[in-house]
Design a binder for these strands. Sequence first.
DNA 1: TATGAATGAGTCTTCATTCAT
DNA 2: GATGAATGAAGACTCATTCAT
Lengths: 187, 187, 187, 187
Amino acid sequence: MSARRDPQGRRQNIIEAAAALIAESGAASLTHRGVAARARVPLGATTYYFATLDDLSTAALHHLAEETDDALRDLADQIGQSRGRPDAVAALVHDYLLAGDQVRADAELYLAGVHRPDLRTLTLRWFEGLVRVLAEHTTPRAARALALYVDGAMLHALTHDEPLDLDEIAFAVTSLMGGPATTDTEH
Amino acid sequence: MSARRDPQGRRQNIIEAAAALIAESGAASLTHRGVAARARVPLGATTYYFATLDDLSTAALHHLAEETDDALRDLADQIGQSRGRPDAVAALVHDYLLAGDQVRADAELYLAGVHRPDLRTLTLRWFEGLVRVLAEHTTPRAARALALYVDGAMLHALTHDEPLDLDEIAFAVTSLMGGPATTDTEH
Amino acid sequence: MSARRDPQGRRQNIIEAAAALIAESGAASLTHRGVAARARVPLGATTYYFATLDDLSTAALHHLAEETDDALRDLADQIGQSRGRPDAVAALVHDYLLAGDQVRADAELYLAGVHRPDLRTLTLRWFEGLVRVLAEHTTPRAARALALYVDGAMLHALTHDEPLDLDEIAFAVTSLMGGPATTDTEH
Amino acid sequence: MSARRDPQGRRQNIIEAAAALIAESGAASLTHRGVAARARVPLGATTYYFATLDDLSTAALHHLAEETDDALRDLADQIGQSRGRPDAVAALVHDYLLAGDQVRADAELYLAGVHRPDLRTLTLRWFEGLVRVLAEHTTPRAARALALYVDGAMLHALTHDEPLDLDEIAFAVTSLMGGPATTDTEH
DNA sequence: TATGAATGAGTCTTCATTCAT
DNA sequence: GATGAATGAAGACTCATTCAT
């Protein structure tokens, strides 16, 4: 067998399978067997590359965190292009909430931090990254408030079939960023 | 021992133990044995009163939802007493976030809904209840925005040692409820 | 199935199977599966009665230690009947060394103490018990020397097909106990 | 790294690492991985030079047996220098018992013989060698008795923190060798 | 020749669930 | 009704051993 002697690739393959499973069903239900099946590798491969399930889980969460970093970078670009106008920010939040996988991934990053304090840095990567991006276009205080609102909206998206209306989001973003008139408060 | 000759009480006892464990460590790690130990009942009692672990878990989550209803009723009272003034609402949110158990319980209610769609009604109990309470003192739209912000703040509280500043919360509440001057916008 | 609802007996059954395996092949190679097969119980039974393999191993060693206590009591009786005459002691040592199972059990008790310091009390049960028995009929110093000689003879018995000659043992016992003339040195 | 271009040396290196591990924790817990780590060689090297773990274990035990031979030669020299006087023999036994590694190694040689009859020649190397050395200075019978006593003392040393008193050992040695006056009984 | 990737057998352990008592 | 004994399925993890490179 020995599917393509490519340790680096195989390792990555396993990580991605684990990350996908985490996004789908949560880190709590991750199993070696599940990952092996998803990655189409023998059971032994998962334990060969990761000494413990915790290691594997952690690696997968780090992988998700990196994807989150990418998403934040994109977000920063897009907000920058729209010069941080609240309605544009609202549209971007709206779009973000429709990207099911990304939302689930970010949520799992949060949850990882709830029960495993050692993984809180991952939670912070998302939350503080979001604050940083927003703070380029509004006050720090508004940025934090907005980030918390987005996190709440994330939870909402995960538990409702109907997404939030763009209008509704625009109301919150506009209110928190200081009204429709204000665009570049500072910076 | 305890609930001898009081099946109802014993059942309730088990439910409460399960609910406490869920709030502490999450529904995913619930076990019959753990509940039995916590409730100080024999192992058999947990399976006697609940056909499956899922049933027990569900019952416990329903119990948490009821406690949440109580908390919401209290909140409604307190907000009513302060006539829905934004700074009072902010203070109540601030207090709520300091009540670790309650926050964790509400969070678990959310999570239950994420991975088990059949339990989404429980999630809604919290979210829509919160919206309803807030909507007594502001527009429906602001109420929803505020509820989402609170949910984000809940996630934040679960993953940070330092609680959010009252000031910070007041900023968000005030912004979303329509400025410090506005109290009873409508209704 | 449920072979004879008899928890006490079943537990004992498992312990004895484990003790037999330890005497045969050493505590290091004990496995749940091996014990289950030997005791003719399902695998789950071994873990039901003993939380960990260590617990089971420890229980089995304690069982062996009790058998050793019995053997020491017998020895004390027999030595007493012969009034501690060296040639009688030698004969008893000679007999003891022919009792393969008992010797292997005592040896495992020793070995348990080598790699698991927490089990050294079991080692002491044998060694100090033997010293105590012997000290009834000779000086403490001679008793200790004799006990050490017996332990060496035990190792010898385990690694040789030919047992030690009675003559040979008698020589050592007599020399250490103070010559053929001396019987009841003290006490 | 190390034994590049020196297969013989690398093989030896592996053997010595295995021997050290056996003396430390017993032959039962030997693993390829453990040896490789200890010898600082790649995992593959351990299987390359030794077809099976058993082969490696056996080679390591042979190595220990050789060290034992050396120790016996030293002992023979030292006893010879003191012309076999019992108190000198006692002092040498006392010293030997303080050399933890050597004692553990000899003990493992014994244990190998207990559960693997094919390795009994190794056990004999130690026991019969010791007898031979002692027999240079006393009767064969006393030499054997003394060797058995020393083996018992070895077990004692492995299971007690406090070493045996020199006095105590001297008593046994003197008694078995024929009293303080006698040095070179025969030969 | 040498190595580390690969795999599956085997181990401990946990637990939901069943069921005799 | 109640309970704890009972069991097997499933999971984490370890490792000897094989083998492609």
